[in-house]
Structure formats: C-alpha cells, structure tokens
C-alpha cells in the first residue's frame, strides 16, 4: 500500500476536499485513486486542468469580493452618480489573451493524452496484450477471450501489468463500459465495436459498471475486473478450458439435473459457449450474483425464485414465483451452481 500513499500525495488538493466531504471511499472504485496506467494519466489531466481552473476561480473570486465590498451602496449616497465608463481596451485585451494562454497550456497535454490513452492499435501496446471481447446485454456483461476461445460473464480476469484491449459491443441497447479505478469509459454500441485499453498496476478486484442509461436496471449493471499475476491468469485460462469440476454431493447432483432441464437453454456451463444468458462455468468463483448481490446461496435462491424482485427488468424468467420450481429444487440448483469453480 505504500504506492497508494504517493497517489494520495499527488492528488492532495482533490483528496483533501474529498475527505472533507465524505471520508474515505472504498478502494478500487474511484477515479481519484487510480490503480492503472490509463486512470493515472487521466487523473493527471484532471489535476492539470483543475489547477489551471483554480487560478481562474481565485482571480475571479478576489476581484468579485473586492468589488462587492468596496462598491456596495452606503447610507447617504443616494444621489451619487458613478462615472459611466464605456470600457477599457487594455483590460479587455488582458482578459481575452490570458485565458487564451491558459487554454493553450491546457490544450497541449489534452491532445497528447487523448491520443496516447486512446491508442489500442500501435505495436507497443498490442504486443503482449490480452484481447477481451466484451458484449453488453440488459443487464449483464459477457467476456470472451478470443485467443483462448474462453467465454465468461460478470467477472473479467486480467493479468496485472499487461495491456488489455477490450473490444466492446452491445447485443441490445447502448451501454457504457467503465472501470473507474483502471480508466475511463467507452460506449458499447449495438452493431459496432469500440476499443479500450486498460492496464492494472496491482492485483485486486476493481468494480466496473454501466455508464449509459440502458433500462430499468441500469443502476445494477455492475461487473468486476479481477487483476491477477500473469501466471495465475494463464492458470485460470487453462482451468477455464478444462471446465468446472463435477458436483459430488447428492443435492448438487439433483441440482445439476434440474439445471439441465430448466436453465441450460439459456445458460451455458461450458466456457466454450456464449449462450443468451451469462455463462456460468466459474460461477462459484465470482464476486457477486447478478453483478451486484453478495455472493451467497441465500441470495442466489432469492434470485432464482424471482429475479425481477432483485433486478427490475431482468430477462431471466421467474422460476419460483411462477411455480416452475419448488423452494427445495431451487436450493438444489443453488448447491449445484456453487460447485461451478475452476479455482482450487
């Protein structure tokens, strides 16, 4: 965490205000506490523009306060007629030219960083980069690793310290892919592909979310990006290719059978298949259920019973409320799903 301290120093002006307002935020969510190269560059730009703008605010603030105090109407001056000044060429030139200079100063890093952070194609960034195809859906995220033919959903696993190129599209409406701690967002447009490069500095789980209004549960369309060491990443890919372990308990086996009859038409449990609903091969390894609920069986059962009660507008049919499945059957399915792991 010592590196964090340096970030804090660098972003002291903002952080101070922030701390004043709200105490400390949660790690790995804030654009002000970057955990990756892109986010760091962007935060630098924020600081540069913020600093220039603080100058402007101070200058205006000082003149403004002085004017209000000095030239306020005082008692007994009712008849006073101020001199009717037409203007001043010198002053007007000053406050035209100085902003132009300030903006020119800002424009240079703006253009430079806009190009450098948007670079997803030059050799230096694609070399050794991991490519992930992201498909946004109402209201979940699918991640495909085309080089390894692996599909997963909700939680993307990426290698720390390597560039990751996300190719982003949408199956239905416009969404926007945003992992604040790693970098800015880019939209997921139906029928088009946008590109985004991110790179994580440290291992950790970074919260991602949808940033473009996409329907009733836009506010619940979270995902996670798990940054792991390069070796762990390779191990994870291989484990995904091998498939999840088979269930052992009786209940989980029952659940597997029920899953095949009731859920398989939409949910794949093999990382080779995309399916029309989230792939569940490594379900048990994920951080959240449906992207945002705490990862426990109780929540999973609630979710299967009535998904829309948790996530309005979710497309998954109501399994329990509509009497397709009993509470016990749902429990068995939950048992089964919690065996779907590729980690040890």
């Amino acid at each position: 965490m010592k590196k964090n301290w340096q970030h804090v120093l660098r972003f002291l002006p903002l952080i101070t205000l922030l701390a004043l307002l709200s105490g400390c935020g949660k790690d790995g969510v804030s654009a002000l506490e970057p955990f990756g190269e892109i986010a760091r560059e962007q935060a630098k730009l924020m600081i540069i523009s913020f600093s220039i703008m603080i100058i402007v605010v101070l200058v205006v603030g000082i003149i403004f306060t002085y004017v209000l105090v000095k030239f306020r109407k005082r008692k007994g001056q009712e008849e006073y007629i101020p001199r009717q000044v037409e203007g001043s060429a010198v002053l007007e030139i000053i406050w035209t030219v100085i902003p132009i200079i300030l903006l020119a100063i800002l424009a240079v890093p703006t253009v430079a960083k806009t190009f450098s952070t948007s670079d997803t194609t030059s050799k230096s960034v694609t070399k050794d980069a991991v490519v992930i195809n992201v498909t946004a859906n109402q209201f979940w995220w699918e991640f495909e690793y085309p080089d390894d033919k692996v599909v997963t959903a909700e939680d993307a696993v990426i290698p720390t310290g390597r560039n990751v190129i996300f190719n982003i599209t949408s199956k239905d409406v416009t969404h926007s892919f945003w992992v604040p701690a790693l970098g800015g967002k880019v939209d997921a447009n139906p029928g088009q592909t946008t590109k985004l490069r991110l790179k994580a500095d440290e291992n950790g789980t970074y919260s991602g979310r949808c940033a473009e209004l996409c329907g009733a549960s836009h506010a619940l369309m979270y995902f996670n990006v798990k940054a792991v060491s390069n070796d762990d990443y390779k191990a994870w890919i291989n484990a995904m290719k091998d498939g999840a372990s088979e269930p052992t308990t009786a209940s989980a086996k029952e659940g597997q059978a029920l899953f095949k009859n009731n859920c398989m038409s939409c949910h794949a449990v093999d990382s080779k298949d995309a399916g029309i609903a989230p792939n569940l091969e490594n379900f048990a390894d994920r951080k959240n259920i449906a992207g945002f609920l705490d990862h426990n069986k109780e929540n999973l059962e609630k979710w299967i019973w009535d998904p829309q009660a948790e996530k309005p507008g979710a497309l998954m049919p109501k399994r329990g409320v509509n009497n397709n499945l009993t509470k016990d059957q749902i429990k068995q399915i939950a048992d089964y799903l919690f065996t779907l792991s590729v980690e040890d």
Binding site: A31, S49, F50, M53, K113, P180, G183
Partner: peptide, 16 residues
C-alpha cells in the same frame, strides 16, 4: 466545463 472538455479526462467524468 473546461475540465470536461479534456477528452481523456472526460472518459472518467462522462455520465457520472
């Protein structure tokens, strides 16, 4: 507004 005009930084601000 000027801060928002900086595209790379706007990637963070946008729709927030």
């Amino acid at each position: 507004g000027v801060m928002l005009a900086v595209p790379a930084a706007d990637f963070q601000y946008h729709d927030s």
